[in-house]
């Protein structure tokens, strides 16, 4: 059977049951359908620290087209720790869509060491990638809008550091010209897209320690330079 056939044949438990295995009451879960949920931040913050909790990092040799199986091993290890009676859980990254449509075809483990529902996880999941992309692109739109409406800050359109992002591997968008089409469309300038995971918003999201910290870091982003050198 292929990975997706194995995944689709899996007998999934409701996410509330999974939460109960970790001692999380259903009231602290925000369900997305029957098999996915987010855990309340407030609840996590209030939990006491476990001093003896161990973090295990799974990494790999340099990737090759022959494949290594890092996520598969991570999932297999998590299951195996529970098989030998240990209290274990996994912390995995959400796969980005671009590579799923390109080379990877999926990134939620493989065989009998997978995270399910794998179609959901690989395709859109809880929509967080989209939220991050939109936050990134809102900032880009605000920047071009500011320049269009008089550029009060005196931003140098040749020195804009902030790119737009999309969750797609699309080489046509690497280097482009935006704002073509006349006066109503702003000032034409050279631009380009990055993939969502390369966005600073994504990095901030991963490193922020709280919502306040997230907000503060967003405010520190350097998006462009003004005409006179600092």
């Amino acid at each position: 059977m292929s990975d997706i056939e194995i995944a689709q044949a899996a007998n999934m438990k409701p996410v509330q049951e999974i939460g109960a295995m970790l001692g999380i009451d259903a009231s602290h879960l925000e369900p997305y359908g029957h098999y996915k949920a987010k855990v309340s931040l407030k609840y996590l913050d209030a939990l006491p620290k476990r001093d003896n909790s161990k973090l295990i990092l799974v990494t790999a040799i340099s990737p090759t087209p022959a494949g290594e199986g890092k996520t598969t091993t991570t999932v297999g290890l998590g299951d195996a720790l529970r098989v030998i009676g240990k209290d274990a859980m996994l912390a995995l990254r959400e796969p980005s869509l671009g590579p799923v449509f390109g080379m990877k075809g999926g990134a939620a483990g493989g065989g009998y060491a997978q995270v399910v529902p794998m179609e959901d996880i690989n395709l859109h999941f809880t929509g967080d990638f989209n939220a991050i992309a939109l936050a990134n692109n809102l900032l880009a739109a605000l920047l071009d809008n500011h320049i269009h409406h008089g550029n009060a800050l005196g931003i140098d359109v040749r020195r804009i550091a902030w790119k737009r992002v999309v969750d797609m591997n699309d080489r046509a968008l690497r280097d482009i010209v935006v704002s073509l089409g006349g006066v109503g469309n702003g000032y034409p300038r050279q631009d380009g897209f990055d993939i969502v995971v390369a966005s600073e918003i994504m990095a901030i999201f991963c490193l922020a320690t709280s919502l306040e910290d997230l907000k503060e870091r967003m405010g520190k982003i350097v998006v462009a330079y003004t005409r006179g050198r600092i």
């Binding site: 973090l55 295990i56 990494t59 290890l77 859980m89 996994l90 995995l92």
Partner: peptide, 9 residues
């Protein structure tokens, strides 16, 4: 905070 062993990659 939730488990004795946390596996990440």
């Amino acid at each position: 905070k939730l488990a004795d062993y946390v596996v990440t990659e």
